[in-house]
Lab assay of single mutants.
Amino acid sequence: YWITCCPTCDVDINTWVPFYSTELNKPAMIYCSHGDGHWVHAQCMDLAERTLIHLSAGSNKYYCNEHVEIARALHTP
């Protein structure tokens, strides 16, 4: 949970406070499906809480801010 998930990541173990109602003692993470995949903080991706809950409940693929354009290009005929 205490990783630098992207170039603009500002989640710090020493200063972090809950942002989403689902967070208690660690930041919400979401899995990016690009390549071998990697974890990113939901807050760093500017996800709305409703979107985070929807993604967490389903089996939808998610692409982080850095990889979403690549994913779109691969799926565009």
Rank of each mutant, 00 (worst) to 15 (best):
Y1T: 09
Y1E: 10
Y1A: 06
Y1I: 04
W2G: 03
I3L: 08
I3G: 11
I3Q: 06
I3D: 12
I3E: 09
I3S: 08
T4K: 10
T4I: 11
T4G: 10
T4Q: 06
C5A: 02
C6Y: 05
C6K: 04
P7V: 12
P7L: 10
T8Y: 02
T8Q: 05
T8V: 06
T8G: 05
T8K: 08
D10K: 09
D10M: 04
D10L: 15
V11Y: 02
V11N: 01
V11E: 00
D12G: 11
D12P: 03
I13A: 07
N14E: 15
N14G: 14
T15V: 13
W16F: 01
W16M: 00
W16A: 00
V17Q: 14
V17E: 14
V17P: 03
V17F: 15
V17M: 08
P18H: 06
P18L: 11
F19E: 06
F19A: 04
Y20G: 04
S21Q: 04
S21V: 04
T22L: 06
T22R: 05
E23G: 03
E23I: 00
E23S: 01
E23F: 00
E23R: 00
L24V: 09
L24S: 07
N25D: 04
N25G: 12
N25V: 14
K26L: 10
K26W: 13
K26Q: 06
K26T: 09
P27Q: 01
P27S: 00
P27V: 01
P27C: 00
A28N: 14
A28Q: 09
A28T: 05
A28L: 09
A28H: 05
M29T: 03
I30N: 12
Y31S: 06
Y31C: 11
Y31V: 05
Y31E: 11
C32W: 00
C32L: 00
S33P: 08
S33F: 11
S33T: 11
S33N: 10
S33C: 10
H34K: 05
H34T: 05
H34A: 11
H34R: 08
H34W: 06
G35C: 01
G35K: 13
G35V: 06
D36Q: 14
D36T: 02
D36A: 06
D36G: 11
D36S: 07
G37V: 02
G37E: 01
G37W: 00
G37R: 00
G37M: 01
H38R: 02
W39T: 06
W39R: 06
W39G: 02
W39M: 09
W39A: 06
V40D: 02
V40A: 04
V40K: 04
V40S: 02
V40I: 09
A42M: 04
A42K: 03
A42D: 01
A42W: 01
A42L: 01
A42C: 08
Q43M: 10
Q43S: 07
C44K: 00
C44D: 01
C44N: 01
M45N: 11
M45V: 05
M45F: 05
D46A: 14
D46L: 13
L47P: 01
L47Q: 06
L47K: 02
A48K: 12
A48P: 13
A48R: 13
A48V: 12
E49T: 03
E49Q: 11
E49M: 07
E49P: 13
E49L: 08
R50P: 15
R50T: 14
R50K: 13
R50C: 15
R50F: 11
T51R: 13
T51W: 03
L52H: 02
L52K: 03
L52Y: 04
I53D: 06
I53Y: 08
I53F: 11
H54L: 13
H54D: 13
L55E: 10
L55K: 11
S56R: 12
S56A: 14
S56N: 06
S56F: 10
A57V: 07
A57F: 07
A57K: 08
A57W: 05
G58L: 13
G58S: 11
G58W: 10
S59E: 12
S59D: 15
S59I: 15
S59G: 13
S59Q: 05
N60I: 10
N60H: 09
N60K: 08
K61W: 07
K61N: 08
K61T: 10
K61D: 02
K61H: 15
Y62S: 02
Y62W: 14
Y62N: 02
Y62Q: 04
Y62E: 02
Y63K: 12
Y63C: 15
Y63S: 06
Y63I: 13
C64G: 00
C64P: 01
C64K: 01
C64A: 00
N65K: 10
N65Q: 06
N65E: 14
N65H: 12
E66S: 11
E66P: 05
H67N: 04
H67A: 04
H67W: 02
V68C: 11
V68D: 11
V68L: 09
V68Q: 02
E69H: 11
E69W: 14
E69A: 09
I70G: 10
I70V: 11
A71D: 11
A71W: 06
A71R: 13
R72L: 09
R72A: 15
R72Y: 04
R72V: 11
A73V: 05
A73T: 13
A73N: 06
A73F: 02
A73C: 15
A73M: 08
A73E: 12
L74Q: 10
L74S: 07
H75D: 15
H75L: 11
T76N: 08
T76I: 07
T76E: 15
T76V: 09
T76G: 10
P77S: 03
P77C: 05
P77Q: 12
P77A: 08
P77R: 15
